[in-house]
């Protein structure tokens, strides 16, 4: 079995990538149908990170104000870093590697000196963040029902 596509703990420790620290690093992974090049282009667009964070069910203060730092080809794929150098400094690192059949595996790692989560656990939040990123990458939108009608907002008369 070819396991080269699976990011190993060694691959996370590629020179230049912060070493895994269980105290402060949190992980999630997702497989997307997009090509590696598409993802790099997506991640370079600051608007996209703002769309992913907008209305996110749980917030993490560290993620607010993330800016693209760099992208670079690595031996085992691409590495993209979104960095927050403001109040809660730290990094969100994306490692990209080809999926077995098609598309790309994204492994996301959050590395912060002190991580500030308002709700839910960090792993849950990383998963939510990456799933929303996958939605936006693959479809161009993030699924929502916010603003749809319901009987919770009954009106006195109908228009049609």
């Amino acid at each position: 079995m070819d396991t080269s596509y699976i990011p190993s703990s060694q691959s996370r420790q590629t020179p230049g990538v912060p070493q895994l620290d269980r105290e402060h690093g949190y992980f999630a992974s997702a497989t997307v149908t997009n090509s590696l090049e598409d993802i790099v282009a997506f991640c370079k667009d600051q608007e996209n990170v703002e769309k992913v964070l907008k209305d996110i069910p749980a917030k993490v203060e560290n993620f607010l104000g993330l800016k693209l730092e760099t992208d670079a080809s690595e031996k085992d794929g691409h590495r993209i870093i979104w960095k927050n150098s403001g109040k809660n400094p730290g990094k969100l690192i994306f490692l990209l590697s080809p999926a077995m059949n098609k598309g790309t595996v994204i492994t996301a790692e959050a590395v912060f000196d002190k991580i500030h989560f308002r709700e839910d656990g960090p792993s849950t939040l990383m998963n939510i963040f990456l799933k929303r990123m996958k939605q936006l990458m693959e479809t161009g939108e993030i699924a929502t029902t916010k603003g749809q009608p319901s009987g919770r907002e009954e009106i006195s008369q109908h228009k049609h």
């Binding site: 161009g140 939108e141 929502t144 009608p149 907002e153 009954e154 006195s156």
Partner: peptide, 12 residues
């Protein structure tokens, strides 16, 4: 119930 009409929320 009488509720608001739906509207476009996403581009698709």
């Amino acid at each position: 119930k009488h509720v608001h009409d739906p509207h476009i929320l996403n581009p698709h």
